[in-house]
Amino acid sequence: MSDSNKKILILGVGNILYTDEGFGVRIAEELDQKYQFSPNVDVLDGGTLGTRLIGPIMESDYLIIVDIVLNEGNPGDIFRLLGQDLEKACAFKNSMHQTDLLDTLAQCSLMGQVPDDVILYGIEPVNYKDMSAALSPELEAKMPEMMDIVLKEVEKAGGSYTLRSATNPATEKIYVPRDSSRNT
């Protein structure tokens, strides 16, 4: 299969109501709002859907997950995780969705349809316990860097993108906007 035929899924996961826990979802929202992707690329706010993500995951050839991870780094450190490292980083119990994501990937594997490539771009959180629709200032500042990293991964996988404009505006509405006023 040529790279341009690969079905690429950008999956942002997390809970936007718990500060940095929503980082992956916020990245997916920003990517969808700012860029139009080639037909072989889908951007999905996976929230805390867990096993409901089996269908979209099984339909993809190249899965790019964005989430927070506890990986013994400093707050704001970004990690590219594959295989066993991905499993270790996703296994922490303080998250509302991490173990669901591992279970979902395991179920896809049992059904024989796991993407050829699964990459997790994780960021070490500052705060994932307090209720707030705002990201911590440290993670808010890391959003452009993470978006650039994900866009490069999309290109590497055979996808493309263009900046949105008045002629190709975003069609999705963000229902719980980030409270960035808290970060000033």
Rank of each mutant, 00 (worst) to 15 (best):
46 G>W: 05
73 G>M: 07
27 I>F: 09
33 Q>C: 07
51 T>M: 15
16 I>H: 02
15 N>A: 07
39 P>R: 11
44 L>M: 15
11 L>H: 06
67 D>L: 13
28 A>V: 14
25 V>K: 00
16 I>R: 00
68 I>T: 13
18 Y>N: 10
77 D>V: 06
11 L>S: 05
50 G>W: 07
33 Q>F: 08
34 K>P: 09
68 I>M: 07
75 P>C: 11
74 N>L: 14
63 L>M: 10
34 K>T: 14
60 S>H: 01
47 G>N: 05
7 K>R: 13
46 G>P: 05
44 L>A: 14
32 D>E: 11
43 V>E: 03
12 G>R: 01
12 G>P: 04
42 D>T: 15
20 D>Q: 05
60 S>V: 02
70 L>V: 14
35 Y>L: 13
19 T>A: 11
38 S>N: 06
77 D>P: 11
10 I>M: 08
23 F>N: 01
35 Y>T: 02
10 I>S: 02
50 G>I: 04
52 R>H: 15
49 L>H: 12
42 D>H: 15
53 L>N: 11
37 F>D: 07
49 L>I: 11
42 D>W: 12
33 Q>G: 08
52 R>S: 15
62 Y>E: 00
44 L>H: 10
45 D>T: 07
76 G>D: 07
41 V>S: 06
20 D>L: 12
27 I>N: 01
12 G>C: 03
75 P>L: 04
32 D>C: 09
72 E>Y: 15
44 L>Y: 14
7 K>Y: 09
76 G>H: 09
64 I>N: 01
9 L>G: 08
22 G>S: 07
50 G>P: 12
11 L>N: 03
15 N>E: 00
9 L>T: 05
31 L>A: 03
65 I>R: 05
9 L>W: 04
22 G>P: 02
14 G>L: 01
37 F>G: 14
62 Y>A: 03
67 D>H: 08
26 R>D: 10
12 G>K: 00
14 G>F: 00
38 S>E: 02
45 D>P: 02
42 D>R: 13
40 N>C: 06
53 L>T: 05
24 G>A: 04
30 E>A: 15
32 D>R: 08
12 G>D: 00
34 K>S: 14
64 I>F: 02
43 V>T: 05
74 N>P: 13
8 I>P: 01
44 L>K: 09
24 G>R: 03
68 I>K: 04
39 P>N: 09
55 G>T: 10
22 G>V: 10
24 G>Q: 09
26 R>A: 03
54 I>R: 12
64 I>P: 00
54 I>P: 13
59 E>I: 12
20 D>E: 10
34 K>A: 08
52 R>G: 13
27 I>P: 07
68 I>G: 05
